[in-house]
Design a protein around this nucleic acid. Structure first.
Lengths: 160, 160
DNA sequence: CCCAGTTGGTGCGACTTCGTACTATACTGT
DNA sequence: ACAGTATAGTACGAAGTCGCACCAACTGGG
């Protein structure tokens, strides 16, 4: 896994990490920033950013979701979720379905248009994912395990 | 590494990932959101959020940095960096030092007050980091390697 | 030299995030 | 039945993000 120093082409290298900062959380921050940057640029032509694409994917994979569900997935406060909901509705990409069991809540679902938007974004997302996977090569499984482990630890460490 | 299912106490578990979404980029997104949430909450008493703490740490570890440097580290557009600079200056946490070699640019450095703020935040950050590391146990090295690998791949995949 | 093109940063404005309050509905024990 | 409390979501406003347009300073070919 280590020392895959095969720098392809003149591709830009990431800045080198000071050893005092080389901890899990700082590395997560670096990866997170770089990933957001990459996805935002890749998806822009489709009119979505990385967060929105994740949201749409979640709504599509599950059978919709309640705002509370989304807040848990995103680790975001409910007010932020409310903004997203409003935005998706304004775009005509999602709609509410009343929940008979709990009338305070509702289930948010992608509309046809929302699914189309997701498909369009996915067509840009998949090549980006493929490129990253290619860069990881045979390490991909280990990386996925590592990310699962970090997520688990974050919750154990007190994510609410 | 896998199946460390020792859920401590009644701690909240993260939602389970649909297998169709279980790819590197989506996992990075989940980890990123959860990490930001954790850090924002942990650091709030010190008046910094996760991004700011990373920024301060970078400025402290390097001997200051130019806005372009920061943009590269953060994978953020220059306008965003400008906002950060203004904010840090407004707080009295950083100041500019003229760069004789390129008079368009400058080097940003933490002031005494900035270092104090960083120290205060670090006192909250370190326990959080320790908790996450504890959760990772002996996997920590593998996780760090994995994060390095992902960062490398992101740049190879076209981070500018 | 010198000027065309590149690079480092910023002002501004549209849009996003999220804390503080608040309402509405659901649970809990008595 | 019914407080009292807990939970789902929202309105609003302050602060943050970043695209567009821009200026200033560097660089390289002629």
């Amino acid at each position: 896994m280590r020392d895959r120093s095969t720098s392809v082409k003149g591709q830009s290298e990431p800045p080198a990490i000071d050893e005092r900062l080389d901890n899990v959380l700082f590395n997560v921050w670096l990866v997170s920033r770089a990933t957001n940057g990459l996805l935002d640029r890749a998806l822009r032509p489709a009119g979505l950013d990385g967060d929105e694409f994740a949201l749409y994917s979640l709504l599509l994979a599950g059978d919709g979701a309640t705002p509370s569900d989304l807040a848990r997935w995103m680790a975001a406060p409910p007010t932020t979720v409310s903004s997203y909901v409003k935005r998706l509705e304004r775009r005509g990409h999602a709609e509410r379905e009343a929940n008979a069991d709990d009338r305070r809540s509702y289930r948010l679902r992608l509309t046809e248009a929302g699914q189309a938007a997701h498909a369009e974004a996915a067509a840009l997302f998949l090549p980006a994912l493929a490129a990253v996977r290619a860069g990881l090569g045979r390490d991909e499984g280990a990386v996925t395990d590592a990310l699962h482990a970090v997520r688990q630890s974050l919750y154990a460490a007190g994510d609410p």
